[in-house]
Nucleic acid binder design. Sequence first.
DNA 1: CCGCATCCTCATGGATACTG
DNA 2: CAGTATCCATGAGGATGCGG
Lengths: 206, 206
Amino acid sequence: MRSYRQYCGLARALDIVGDRWNLLIVRQLLIAPARYQELLGGLPGIATNLLADRLRDLETEGVIERRLPDTGNGIIYALTDWGAALREPVEGLIRWSTPLMIRGADGDQFRPHWLGLALSALLTPRARGNRSASVGIVVDGETIQLRVERTGVKVGPHDGRNLDATVHADPQIILGLAAGVLSIDDLDALIDIQGDKAAVRAILGA
Amino acid sequence: MRSYRQYCGLARALDIVGDRWNLLIVRQLLIAPARYQELLGGLPGIATNLLADRLRDLETEGVIERRLPDTGNGIIYALTDWGAALREPVEGLIRWSTPLMIRGADGDQFRPHWLGLALSALLTPRARGNRSASVGIVVDGETIQLRVERTGVKVGPHDGRNLDATVHADPQIILGLAAGVLSIDDLDALIDIQGDKAAVRAILGA
DNA sequence: CCGCATCCTCATGGATACTG
DNA sequence: CAGTATCCATGAGGATGCGG
């Protein structure tokens, strides 16, 4: 993309990450470092030449870096420290998009990890938790683990440890709960909770 | 721009504001509602047909609205409530861009209001102020007023009221101070402070 | 004047096939 | 596996025109 040539922080930020696909690549790497093919799978719709171009751009600008794993073969792409600092504005945009998301998927592609990032964006600001609990959200066969403590909320893949409860529900239901526009009590038919319902309420409740 | 067709908050947000120029238009309207010609002047480099296109898009998506002033003639563009909520991610991107800004303008276009928005982004998070003070920053002949109180920092155009101090310095110096990478004491030759130096230190100091 | 719309040129994005 | 190469479609940029 052409530079805006404006001495303004927003314009200079967009000179780097404003190119089409760039922030979505950052999104994938905020979820976890990834290989080229994993990025292609996590970015449905991108053309392979564009992914290669953007990875080059982002690397030369210092947003991402290539790592060679100990096993020797292949390349792993990861965010630099500065690139990882994009989590704040990215999660801000995700919070802003809530009205667009509660309308439902409408045929769009979906990856469970994206929901994990959205939950991180929606739940982290309100550091809830005089009670500690861990809950698994099962979507598309993948389990996202939410753990709340006094320090805040941690979101990530299921680490195999014990869960206080397991929730099965559609993504937009989970998002509605996390955003506070839905209440658990109104949705018995749409949510399947196994285990400690109070733990779910502590994390996703009003 | 084509939709990403991804059921992800970031992708849906970028479907709306990811088009080139869109976030910069939002930036201008975060500073103040504006007429078409004012937007053209505040967005150096944009083509007039693109501005018209983008304003239409943003209006149909509910980010901005057209207002007819009491004087009757002309159109005033302003953010909707939802559009104004973009302040958070926009200021996040501005904070992220600090390393790009302290390098200096390098011939890029500049508008004093942009510095005001950057100061808002950098100073608001750290709600400083056991002391109340108001300071004017003079850049390119325009005065930006910073007012700190217990409740936080307010940034805006000079309202004509008394200032505790007036600062003359280049934008990158002001940004370096606000970002905490420069210290007032090291820069006597580059900053001209008239009035209460302690008030300046209370707002821009370490 | 202000608020756009049209026209044209060129850079960028997108889809597919192919390679070290 | 990790990308290039190629070709076509789309969108940006710039100049200019035009109605209220």
